[in-house]
Amino acid sequence: MTPHVAPAVPSPSVTASATPSADPVLRVPPAAPEDAAAYFAASLAFHTDVADVAAALEAGVRGFTVADSRSAEAWEQGRIPGALHLPTAQIPYLAGKFLDPSVPVVVHCWGPGCNGATRAAYALARLGYQVKEMLGGIEYWIREGFPVETGDGTERRPADPLTAPAGAGHCGC
């Protein structure tokens, strides 16, 4: 009888010597370029950022739906104009009523310190929706100076110079 041998798990190619680096950045060496390209391509398939969402919405691109996964109280504080309110806990009940399965969903929550958007994206993906998480959430939407809708109308605050370029324009990324 031949013993069962588990298949080898491929490890990322690295271009490092066996000598540990004193440099904390290079203590773990960078991945090989082809591994890095695959990783970053995958990351872009799962994430977008507030600047790209804002640019698409301002240009009138409607190839996706923006879904806000926060609570009703948070939604009332301010939201992205045109966003759909889809609290995470209610996704299994509301997604089929309000989302078109053929249209990708960009989901967000409060900000980078919150994984609510990740949980919402997971719930939507499990239901068969194409989904991306908007990095930075509503916090960075507001901090970068994009419009916010409330019961009193739409407002736009000045951009925080620590999160967005001062003056007109964009960061160029």
Rank of each mutant, 00 (worst) to 15 (best):
M1K: 09
H4E: 10
V5G: 09
A8M: 15
A8Q: 15
P10T: 13
P12Y: 14
V14Q: 15
V14W: 13
T15P: 14
A16C: 13
T19R: 14
P20M: 09
S21K: 07
S21T: 08
S21G: 07
D23C: 09
L26Q: 12
R27K: 11
R27C: 08
V28S: 09
V28Y: 12
P30I: 11
A31E: 15
E34K: 14
A36W: 12
A36M: 15
A37V: 14
Y39T: 15
Y39N: 13
Y39D: 15
A42T: 13
A42K: 14
A45E: 13
V50N: 05
A51I: 07
A54H: 10
A55L: 05
L57S: 01
A59R: 11
V61D: 15
F64A: 00
V66M: 05
V66F: 01
R70K: 07
R70T: 06
A72T: 05
A72F: 01
E73F: 00
A74N: 03
A74M: 06
W75N: 01
G78N: 05
P87F: 01
T88I: 00
Q90G: 05
Y93S: 06
A95M: 04
G96D: 04
L99Q: 05
L99V: 01
L99E: 02
L99K: 00
V103I: 11
P104I: 04
V105R: 01
V107N: 03
V107M: 02
C109S: 08
W110Q: 10
W110H: 12
G111Y: 05
G111C: 10
C114V: 06
N115M: 09
G116Q: 03
T118I: 11
R119A: 09
A120Y: 00
A121Y: 02
Y122I: 05
L124P: 02
A125T: 07
L127R: 03
L127C: 01
G128Q: 03
Q130F: 08
K132Q: 13
G136N: 05
E139Y: 09
Y140N: 10
W141L: 08
W141I: 04
W141R: 06
I142R: 13
E144L: 07
E144F: 03
G145T: 10
P147V: 09
V148P: 05
G151M: 10
E155Q: 14
E155H: 13
A159L: 04
P161S: 08
G167R: 10
A168H: 12
G169R: 09
C171V: 12
C173I: 12
C173L: 14
